[in-house]
């Protein structure tokens, strides 16, 4: 009897062991996923931070489009294709552009300046004021972006933006990246690589690319942290906001303009 019990016990032990092993194997990925979910994606945007960019136009090189290309690649804008039948001129005016290079000449002195221009992530964004549904919004960390679930495609934000920073998706999309959802009939613009913020990845695609080329004209960081590199740069260099007269307190600042 006792021998028989011992036999059963051994059998049971093996079964339990196997079950525990299988259970652990099944649970392990779930534990890993759970751990990932507690990274910044689970947390609301932090109001103690204000993300922004500082651009040193003296370092921005003529003809270089590294930032524009990197942005297009990071956000799937390089997957855009002109619809069949669209002329190149139409497409140039209708495709989505989140950051562009601009070359300026001072009318008085003739001095030329190069700079990248994108959403300026205003503290008081006119696009957010005018949006009828509240789809155009500012996150607690200062990032201005569009909620693609409530955007009705009225384009009033594009009328209001002083920087022409926004694009309307004019064509049906067949290709896009899962971390940057896009859709026909909605408005979009630079969101300071918001998916990177949420996945805890540092910097933005444009700043990273600019650094890789060795120019280092774009600095990304927390404007609210006095010890951040961007704050130290802004404290040491004279910079200005584009259309300062509108008192929007932009999150993107330019040196040498």
């Amino acid at each position: 009897m006792s021998e028989q019990r011992a036999e059963i016990d051994r059998e049971r032990r093996r079964l339990l062991g196997a079950a525990a092993g299988a259970g652990a194997a099944l649970a392990a990925p779930a534990v890993v996923v759970r751990a990932l979910e507690t990274t910044p994606r689970d947390n609301p945007a932090d109001g103690r931070v204000r993300w922004g960019l500082a651009i040193d136009t003296a370092k921005c090189a003529a003809g270089c489009t590294a930032c524009v290309d990197a942005c297009a690649h990071e956000n799937g804008l390089d997957l855009q294709r002109p619809p069949e039948g669209a002329t190149p001129a139409d497409w140039a005016a209708q495709r989505a552009v989140w950051v562009r290079k601009v070359r300026l000449r001072d009318d008085q002195t003739g001095r030329e300046t190069n700079l990248p221009l994108m959403c300026q992530h205003c503290e008081h964004p006119p696009c957010v004021d005018v949006c009828p549904t509240g789809a155009s919004f500012k996150r607690a960390d200062g990032i201005v972006m569009v909620d693609r679930h409530t955007c009705i495609g009225c384009r009033y934000c594009m009328m209001a933006c002083p920087y022409k920073a926004r694009s309307f998706i004019h064509e049906a999309l067949s290709d896009q990246l899962s971390h940057v959802p896009r859709g026909k009939g909605c408005v979009e613009s630079c969101n300071l690589c918001v998916h990177r913020r949420d996945f805890g990845i540092p910097s933005t695609a444009c700043a990273e690319a600019c650094a890789e080329t060795g120019h280092g004209a774009i600095l990304f960081g927390d404007l609210a942290d006095p010890d951040s590199a961007i704050s130290r740069f802004l404290a040491s260099e004279p910079t200005r906001q584009i259309r300062e007269d509108l008192a929007l307190n932009t999150g993107v600042r330019y040196a040498g303009v």
Binding site: T65, V68, A92, A93, V97, R100, K101, V102, R103, L104, R105, D106, D107, Q108, E112, T113, L117, P162, Y163, K164, I242, R243, V257
Partner: peptide
């Protein structure tokens, strides 16, 4: 065009400036 840079002329732009 939006007057982004008063006193300056835009020579080149990647997006209708």
């Amino acid at each position: 065009p939006l007057q982004l840079f008063p006193g300056k002329t835009i020579l080149e732009s990647g997006f209708l400036d």
